[in-house]
Amino acid sequence: MNTINMSMAVVVAVLYGVGFYLLLQRSLMRVLIGIVVLGHGANLLLQLAGGPPARAPILGSAPDEQIADPLPQALALTAIVITFALTTYLLALGYRSWVLVGHDEVQDDIEDRRIAHRRAPEASMGEEAGSDDMSEDEDDPGSAAASGDPVEPSVTSGPAGSGRGVGR
């Protein structure tokens, strides 16, 4: 069983902490950076799983007991390539989302929006008509696209997603 030294354990813990904190943010950019940081943490942990640092694992270059375990290095290398590729894809997706929606916020899911709509009439009767329209929109997949994110703006900046960066 390999154990790791304290400083490395702290580094990994901080990377995981920061990563998960950023994952819970609303902005997609922060989520993405969170995934990158979390990936670094996981890869570092994978490296550390191989035991303390030692000589390069080339047969004959050093006595066997001084050679580092090559397997975690190979695993980490593979994992780095995979996380890198997927980060790139997520970046592209984030850009696409920005082009289509006009902001990079991760939006509420349909269920959350429905519950918010259900509560909305109780809070302010004036908005009832507007929210009814939207809940009808959600029934078919295409036109829900047009309404985008109906809840967020009404919470922060009054009714309906007015001027929500469509022209940006």
């Binding site: 994952l23 979390l38 997706l93 696409r96 989302s97 991760v106 899911d109 997949p141 696209a145």
Partner: peptide, 21 residues
């Protein structure tokens, strides 16, 4: 993708990436 589908796609990608990590 369209604007709705990119939101759900995004949720899916982020959740899956987290579970992979």
């Amino acid at each position: 993708t369209s604007a709705t589908r990119i939101r759900s796609g995004m949720t899916y990608v982020i959740i899956s990436l987290t579970s992979s990590l």
